[in-house]
């Protein structure tokens, strides 16, 4: 059976990764609204993903307002693809091969 990536498998982090996989980059506010997590929770999950090397976090400013941009790293993209493949392998019903049996007469 395929090994599941425990970092990505956690539902909140999977949501973050899934959201980031479809965009070039997103800010903290977008992720906060789309995931429905609290600020603290989202920060914790983002740090965990950053430590694993799956996301890149860039802290900058839009005018005077702090802006945290998050994007999926190439490692994150590869890990997410691999995770999806593993899930597909697990969930796909096993193909039973029918072997013809010669019954005794």
């Amino acid at each position: 059976m395929s090994e599941l990536n425990r970092v990505i498998h956690e539902p909140a982090r999977l949501t973050i990764i899934a959201l980031l996989s479809s965009v070039k980059e997103a800010d903290f506010l977008y992720l906060l609204r789309e995931t429905g997590l609290t600020k603290g929770n989202l920060s914790t999950h983002l740090i965990r993903l950053e430590e694993a090397g799956y996301v890149e976090i860039e802290k900058t400013f839009r005018g005077k307002i702090p802006l945290t941009l998050v994007r999926l790293s190439p490692e994150g993209k590869a890990a997410f693809q691999s995770y999806r493949k593993s899930m597909k392998d697990i969930l796909e019903p096993s193909k039973m091969r029918r072997v013809p049996v010669q019954l005794p007469t």
Partner: peptide, 15 residues
């Protein structure tokens, strides 16, 4: 940048 991003966040679509 003036109306949407400060309210609901910024997101850039991929190439």
């Amino acid at each position: 940048a003036r109306i949407t991003f400060p309210r609901t966040g910024y997101v850039a679509l991929p190439k």
